Structures are given as C-alpha cells and as structure tokens.
Simulated scan of single mutants.
Amino acid sequence: MRVVIARCSVDYEGRLTAHLPLATRLLMVKADGSVLVHSDGGSYKPLNWMAPPCTMAELEPEDDERAEGVQAVWRVQHAKSEDHLRVRLHEVLHDSSHELGIDPGLVKDGVEAHLQKLLAQHITTLGDGYTLVRREYLTAIGPVDILCKDAAGACVAVEIKRRGEIDGVEQLTRYLELMNRDPHLTAAGPVTGVFAAQQIKPQARTLATDRGIRCVTLDYDALRGIDDADTRLF
C-alpha cells in the first residue's frame, strides 16, 4: 500500500463531475489498484475514490497547472468506463509504501456459527428435556442449523440468526414444510420450529407466531457463561 499525505485538489469525471478544492488530504493507493482520497473527518468513508479495475499514471503537470503550483498529477482511469480521477499534487508532505501481506479477514465474535455451537452445547436453553440430535441437519434444500427433540420426543428444527428478520422465518418455514413430509422425523409428532436470534424484529416475530414457530431471544454472554440473566441485578 502506498500512503501519501499531500496538499492536493481532486476532480472526478464520469457519470457526474465532482471537485475537491485544494486542501491537505490522505491519498491511499492499494495493491488491488484502488485509489482513495480521505480527509481528517467523515469517519471511514473516503471523499472520493476509484475502485478496481483501474490504472494510475503519474504525469507532469500541464502549463496552466504548473503556473498554479501543481508539482505532479495522478490520473486514475477506470478500465471499464470513462470514469477517471485527476489528482493535482501541490505539496507532498509524506510518501511511503508498505507491504501489508495477505489479510486473514475480520473474525467476528457472536456470529451465527458461534451461536449455533453454543446453543447446541446448551440445548436446554430452548426448554427442559430438550436433547440435541445434530447440528447442520441436511435437507434437500439446505442444512437446518440444529435438529433437536423436545421433552416429548418430537423433532424441532432450529434456525439461528444474529438478527432475526422475515427472510429467516421464511427460510425456516421452507425447512419445516419439507421435514414434515419425512415419516422418520414425524414419528413422534409434527416437526415444529424455533426461530432463535440475538435480536428479532417485530415483523419477523409476528410472522413466526402466525406460522406456529416459536421465537427465542438468545443471550450470547449467558450462553458463553460470562453473564447469568437469572442472577443479574439489573
């Protein structure tokens, strides 16, 4: 990655035109070819950018640009359109390049895979007498997150989300329709559904209830044993 701090102006031309007047900014040229223009505010979002595929050429300034104090020009051209950036550098305060290597990606805590594992370990969170059959129970239309049995021995399909929305309810509904055609799963009664999430939107809860699907709000910290909702003072 190349990191440049410079007094510069930036012009974008393509589907629209945009101009950033002369100011001190951070310019980032990434290994994937993208070029981003940042200010010291506005959080993470760049003021302007060019996403790959694109190419960058460093040019000598034209006479009128040189007369205005421009020392160098970057022209960033998108490979699949006429969109381009013209960055006019008036003064370079910092210019360095760094090899960052391959990034392993963001590892999130509390993602659905973690919730599934924890709920499988503490399946009685769903009710007394519940027992785990297996995680990732395969069906013809995809895997059900958890298949378990209730105290009466009837099968229960559990769909787990971090944020429970209508799409998740629809997904579980499709699983239930298919699983209830399997006599091996319905030997002790119809397969019922549990929609489990850390947060469940009201619309999803309403739809689930209307379809006979039970909603369970999961407390991630409690499942991990960090927090106990029953002994919490407030």
Rank of each mutant, 00 (worst) to 15 (best):
A204V: 04
G127L: 08
R232I: 04
E68M: 08
D210M: 13
Q77G: 00
G14K: 08
V37G: 01
H94R: 10
L172C: 03
D230R: 14
V158F: 07
V3Q: 12
L26Y: 13
K161Y: 04
G212N: 04
G105L: 09
D64H: 14
L47M: 14
V37L: 12
Q199H: 12
L27F: 14
S96Q: 13
Y44G: 11
V92H: 05
A204M: 03
Y44I: 10
T24S: 12
C215Y: 07
H38Y: 15
L147V: 05
D63Q: 12
G225T: 09
V70M: 02
A140H: 07
R181V: 03
L93S: 11
T217A: 13
S9C: 04
A120E: 08
P61Q: 08
G101A: 08
H90M: 02
D103Q: 11
V3W: 08
G110R: 09
V73L: 05
A23E: 12
P202M: 06
A197C: 13
L185Y: 10
L119V: 08
V191H: 05
A157Y: 02
K30P: 00
I102L: 13
E91M: 02
G101N: 05
D83W: 01
F234G: 08
L176R: 07
A72H: 02
D228M: 01
R211S: 02
L93D: 11
L223R: 03
R163C: 10
K30Y: 10
L172W: 06
H38G: 00
G193Q: 03
L20E: 10
V73Q: 06
R174M: 09
I226C: 04
L218G: 06
L115W: 09
A18R: 15
E99N: 12
L89G: 03
E112T: 05
C148W: 08
R211V: 01
L178F: 04
D95L: 07
L16W: 10
W74V: 04
R181D: 11
H78N: 15
L119M: 05
V76Y: 03
H84P: 00
D167V: 11
Q203G: 01
D145K: 08
I141H: 07
